[in-house]
Design a protein around this nucleic acid. Structure first.
Lengths: 165, 165
DNA sequence: TATAACTAGTTAGCATGCTAAGTAAATAAC
DNA sequence: GTTATTTACTTAGCATGCTAACTAGTTATA
């Protein structure tokens, strides 16, 4: 059996160089995890887990007072995933939920004074992490980097559209 | 309470432009998820979930016949996480585990003939996804992209070392 | 050699993502 | 206006990551 494998590996040896390159997707995953870990290292001491602080952060950036649906879409997670996080944040006293007057199906999420206070503490930590991680990288390099990311994203979306069609 | 928030947002308005930029970490996460989704779309029809096919793929690249510990490290997951996946792959008949002669604590994982057959099917699919996602991106751009990723990774590792020390 | 410290594997149980299915409200179709 | 469809939320339960704690085997130390 081992010899079968060996034979196959030898057979596809012209591909081997490209096989080595295939780590790009893995590197992407690793980098994302590293960034998240670095941010968590600063923010977990404040009593917030990753899903909680990202939800608070996003809520601020959305301008507060948005429906759970809007928040979930912005975080790119599903509503049931957000539910649990919002329950926790509500228990911690950082957010409130109330019924929407205009659409009685919806519930509006807003920051409490404690939540705003927590965000102030978070803000400097998050900026610090960003500065640390982007040290030594020029604005031009950053722009190029983001452009490549955009292009790969577009390719991925196009591929997914095509395969689902 | 809303006015408190408004005041604070106004107060930190010099930061607002930088706040908008903060999406880089999120874009990284989104891109990783997209890549994974595109790959899964090709591979799940073969009966393999994401953790399973990545484990098989990594096992091949490690040259087969490695300990669970080595495989877990290479996949950058913990042993208990790998355990479950290997149990599934063993149930599916794609891998085997046997005791290591030299170190009786360890168990060696190897591909079965069925596993090798499955990998052959996987290989073309994975290449296809890569080609699709990197369409229109030059080798030079790709090199630059990977260099920036490396630099951010190094910065992150340095930051984490410093904070844990 | 005998004991201490470490390492590989395992099991158990938590956290957070998901999909599926159900309810209530809003909107579209007739 | 009534009915059908869609939408927002919720609950329930699965998948996969993790840490903690345990066992068995190895290595280092006295």
């Amino acid at each position: 059996m081992l010899s079968t494998l060996t034979k196959w590996v030898l057979l596809m040896s012209p591909e081997l160089e490209r096989l080595k390159e295939l780590s790009l997707a893995e590197n992407l995953g690793r980098l994302h995890r590293l960034w998240r870990t670095a941010a968590d290292a600063e923010l977990i001491p404040l009593g917030l887990t990753h899903p909680r602080w990202t939800a608070l952060w996003k809520l601020l950036r959305l301008g507060d007072n948005v429906s759970q649906k809007v928040l979930a879409d912005a975080l790119e997670i599903e509503l049931p995933s957000l539910m649990r996080t919002l329950n926790q944040l509500e228990d911690q006293g950082y957010v409130q939920r109330r019924c929407c007057e205009k659409d009685k199906r919806a519930r509006i999420v807003s920051l409490t004074p404690d939540g705003i206070e927590m965000l102030k503490q978070m803000e400097s930590k998050i900026m610090l992490v960003r500065r640390n991680l982007l040290a030594g990288i020029s604005q031009q390099q950053l722009n190029d980097f983001e452009n490549i990311m955009s292009q790969i994203s577009e390719n991925a979306l196009a591929t997914l559209d095509k395969s689902s069609a």
